[in-house]
Design a protein around this nucleic acid. Structure first.
Length: 275
DNA sequence: CTTGCCCCCTGCACGC
DNA sequence: TGCGTGCAGGGGGCAA
């Protein structure tokens, strides 16, 4: 489900719910997500600690603790965080519960279990292994530059769309926003990345920030079931130019939007506007 | 090292 | 009503 804008929307909603709160206890469903929930580490480093700050790196939520440890949460495809009353029975697919000393709790619900919960002890919290290979943040304009993307794509044959979704190159861009960014840049998603001119790379980079920021401002895109911490849908999906619009007229030229697979993922583009 | 393929898992829409 | 199929915002392991 969530790409960078959706995770950022969750971060913004989660921060006021948990910052300054002390975790009283943790509960897990016992079912593994992408990896087993590290209950021992959660009890050691999270239970009893105060959450000082909620940050984000790529699609990871980073909950800093006052003992120096770091709680990492990845929402995968269907992960949701929501506040709950501890007296109310967990919902189906609630896999982690963080109970606070003020009588509230936060639950992590993840039907498909592609999410991830990890704990970095204080010694690793500044450089968690899970974040070690990640490329720059696309909203950091000094890092995700045309010069950077141009250099990193030279000699590479994979389609530019697949490369934009590779978090070693740039983080946070998934299937929706890769399609949208390339439409805005007028670049065909199947173009081998290394074939793109400096000017076209520049258009891709220039299109990225505004699209991601507009989505964050709109509360993210809710295609099926994305929800913020209040359970509310976003509305950026109303502004999508190509994603999910196969057969519908291009908003710019009226040509029907195409849908083709790229690396097994549905890829939407305007065959006329994107060359 | 790169690249494509397949898998993890559940839920939903659709056709029959 | 039920069943089979295909698809879904992610990401990692594996083989060639």
């Amino acid at each position: 489900m969530p790409e960078l804008p959706e995770v950022e929307v969750v971060r913004q909603g989660l921060a006021p719910l948990v910052e300054g709160r002390r975790v009283k206890g943790v509960r897990s469903s016992g079912l593994a997500l992408r990896a087993p929930i590290p209950l021992a580490a959660l009890k050691k480093w999270v239970a009893g600690a105060v959450i000082t700050q909620v940050g984000r790196r790529a699609k990871f939520l980073l909950l800093s603790l006052d003992n120096g440890a770091l709680l990492l949460i990845h929402l995968g495809m269907t992960g949701k965080l929501y506040p709950a009353d501890p007296a109310v029975a967990p919902r189906k697919h609630d896999h982690l519960r963080l109970l606070f000393d003020d009588g509230r709790e936060i639950r992590f619900n993840d039907a498909r279990r592609f999410g991830l919960v990890a704990v970095a002890p204080p010694a690793e919290a500044q450089a968690p292994a899970l974040l070690a290979e990640l490329g720059p943040e696309p909203l950091e304009e000094s890092a995700f530059t045309a010069a950077y993307l141009y250099q990193r794509t030279r000699g590479r044959r994979p389609p530019i769309k697949n490369m934009l979704m590779d978090n070693r190159l740039v983080v946070g861009i998934g299937n929706i926003y890769a399609c949208e960014i390339l439409f805005a840049a007028g670049v065909n998603p199947f173009t081998p990345a290394g074939d793109l001119s400096r000017a076209r790379i520049g258009r891709i980079v220039a299109a990225t920030g505004p699209i991601l920021r507009r989505s964050i401002a709109a509360g993210g895109a809710t295609i099926a079931d994305f929800a913020n911490t209040n359970g509310e849908a976003g509305y950026f999906q109303q502004q999508l130019a190509v994603y999910g619009r196969a057969g519908q007229p291009c908003r710019r030229c009226q040509t029907p939007i195409s849908r083709r697979l790229s690396a097994g993922r549905a890829t939407f583009f305007c065959p006329r506007c994107q060359k």
